[in-house]
């Protein structure tokens, strides 16, 4: 009941839906409304958008630009400035490699080499079949177990190229 009332309110407050009829646009609109469509809420709004859609598609960024009255080039500029925003769909699995100082000293570059070779992609890319995304991050705060990686949300430490390749190769055709 409460849920239904809430949807009702949302329906009333939000303006015309996105022509695609995709409900997520409506949810995003509610978020923007909560920020009074202020242009300085751009980063928060993009976070919300990425959470809803998984990544920031061009169409989605135009939608945000229109509502926040921001030039498209500014929205694109901000979206590409921060590593956290992704303009392409993420792979089914993700491997984040820490390249912070401690992990670097403990051989993060060898891990990166090994994964790049195994998957045939560079850091920041996703395999063509959409199976694996490879991301690097500067310090996960897990220096005690350097070199640290995060595989599908689970932090793992003291990795070697071999141990990491073992974990990932099942997802890759040439693994």
């Amino acid at each position: 009941m409460a849920e239904a009332a809430k949807t009702e309110v949302i329906k009333k407050k939000a303006g015309p839906a996105h022509p695609s009829g995709d409900k997520r646009f409506k949810l995003l609109e509610v978020t923007m409304k909560r920020h009074q469509f202020r242009s300085d809420a751009l980063i928060e709004v993009m976070h919300a958008a990425q959470e809803l859609f998984g990544f920031l598609e061009v169409d989605l960024m135009f939608f945000i630009a229109r509502y926040l009255k921001l030039p498209p080039s500014r929205v694109f500029g901000v979206a590409t400035f921060y590593n956290l925003f992704s303009l392409r769909p993420k792979g089914e699995h993700t491997c984040v490699l820490c390249t912070g100082t401690a992990c670097y000293v403990k051989g993060a570059d060898a891990l990166l080499d090994a994964v790049e070779k195994l998957a045939g992609i560079k850091a920041g890319e996703t395999t063509e079949d959409g199976k694996l995304s490879l991301v690097t991050a500067r310090c996960l705060g897990a220096c005690g177990i350097a070199p640290a990686v995060v595989v599908d949300g689970t932090v793992k430490g003291l990795e070697t190229p071999d141990s990491l390749v073992q974990q990932l190769k099942g997802w890759l055709p040439n693994g």
Partner: peptide
């Protein structure tokens, strides 16, 4: 405000609108 800068560091580029061809820019 057709132009802005996308990316950063060595990957920074000036862009028009949503990084689309200049000729397609609406602004």
């Amino acid at each position: 405000h057709t132009w802005d800068v996308s990316g950063r560091g060595v990957r920074a580029r000036v862009i028009t609108d949503m990084n689309q061809p200049w000729g397609d820019s609406d602004t």
